[in-house]
Simulated scan of single mutants.
Amino acid sequence: MNVVVVNDYDEMSKRAASIIASQVILNPKSVLGFATGDTPIGTYKELVKIYKEGYIDFSDVVTFNLDEYYSISKENPQSYNFYMKNYLFNHINVKDENIHMLNGMCDDIEKECTSYENLIKESGGINLQILGIGRNGHIGFNEPNANFEGVTHLVHLDKGTINANSRFFNSVEEVPTKAISMGIKTIMSVKKILLLASGIKKSEAVYHAVNGPITPKVPGSILQLHPDVTLILDKEAAYKISSRNEKYRNLSIVEGKK
């Protein structure tokens, strides 16, 4: 597990965008996994900038998204389908047929999940997956639980997640209580993972994710077992691991530019 600590959110976003851009330049047919929420917005804006400057071409890239709210239409401004188009897809030359999003209005959850898993396999697997981490340690919408969930599945969202996401809605009552998410097994099967975290409110989750123990009570802790994980953290998100460096001899911690 490699940990890169940078000064602030802007530097985190630029570092992450450069890694994603490098992946696409080295393999123009890359399969990319995208995340949503506040954290990757800056990264997507940087990617759009790099694209408009002519350095990368997304025409052969295939994409999959981590999750989607259940019982919310793709036209809804709070849907992750809308989010991805607004922040990234409408501004680059990725082909519509290469974009894969979960259907939050599907009638058959099991069929939707199985179909999504099959599409990932048919694509050859995800080369690079972008992740955020929730305050409770969730990755995707895999909430703290008694067991690690395997493949793409329906999730009942924790109250903490609902409250945290209520900032995007007019009220907490409007926040969906369910979502469809890639499972832990799906996430762990990708070739490379890039996890982004910013802000002091994420420092506790980051600390437990990288320090262990590996437990479904902190879903992000499973990433310790993945062979190719890079965390890009601003100083606030890295506060707890940076202040207790002696416990992280198994990590490669790189300080960003001053």
Rank of each mutant, 00 (worst) to 15 (best):
K192Q: 13
G137V: 04
M105K: 11
Q23H: 09
E46W: 08
N90R: 12
G134M: 01
Y207V: 02
M84L: 07
T152N: 03
N147D: 15
V94R: 01
R244N: 15
E110I: 15
N76P: 08
G212P: 07
E143L: 05
L251S: 02
H226W: 08
G140L: 02
L196I: 12
H208T: 11
I139F: 01
V206C: 07
D67S: 06
L195F: 06
R167Y: 09
T36N: 12
I232T: 05
D60P: 03
F169A: 13
S30H: 03
K257P: 12
K240C: 06
R167T: 00
P77L: 04
A238C: 11
Q129A: 08
Y51N: 02
S13D: 05
I253Q: 07
K240N: 15
G199R: 05
V31D: 02
D108P: 00
A179F: 07
V61K: 03
N86I: 01
I56V: 14
K202I: 09
S22A: 14
V31L: 03
A35H: 01
P176Q: 08
A17H: 05
P176I: 03
R249N: 13
G37E: 07
M84E: 03
A17R: 05
F58D: 05
Y83W: 11
L154A: 08
Y207S: 09
H91M: 12
N98I: 10
G160S: 06
N211S: 15
V229M: 00
L195N: 03
L131F: 06
K85E: 12
D96K: 12
G104M: 01
A237R: 00
L194S: 08
E46G: 02
Y69S: 09
H138Q: 03
L66A: 06
C113Q: 05
I162C: 06
P227T: 00
E11H: 11
H91K: 15
E236I: 05
T114G: 14
I41A: 10
N163D: 09
N145W: 09
K258D: 04
K49A: 12
P227L: 00
V172W: 11
K95I: 04
P227I: 04
E110N: 14
E117S: 10
V172D: 12
K14F: 04
G104D: 06
L251I: 07
S243K: 13
R244I: 00
V190F: 05
K14T: 08
N165S: 09
L32R: 00
P40L: 05
K201D: 14
V172C: 13
Y83T: 00
A17D: 05
N2Y: 11
K49C: 07
E246Y: 15
I200T: 06
P213W: 13
I120N: 02
N245F: 15
V172A: 15
G212K: 12
C113I: 09
N127L: 09
K49R: 13
Y9C: 10
L119V: 06
V190T: 15
S171Y: 10
L47Q: 01
V190N: 14
E255H: 10
H138K: 04
K217I: 15
N142V: 09
Q78D: 12
F148E: 03
N136W: 07
I139R: 01
G183W: 04
L225E: 11
N165T: 08
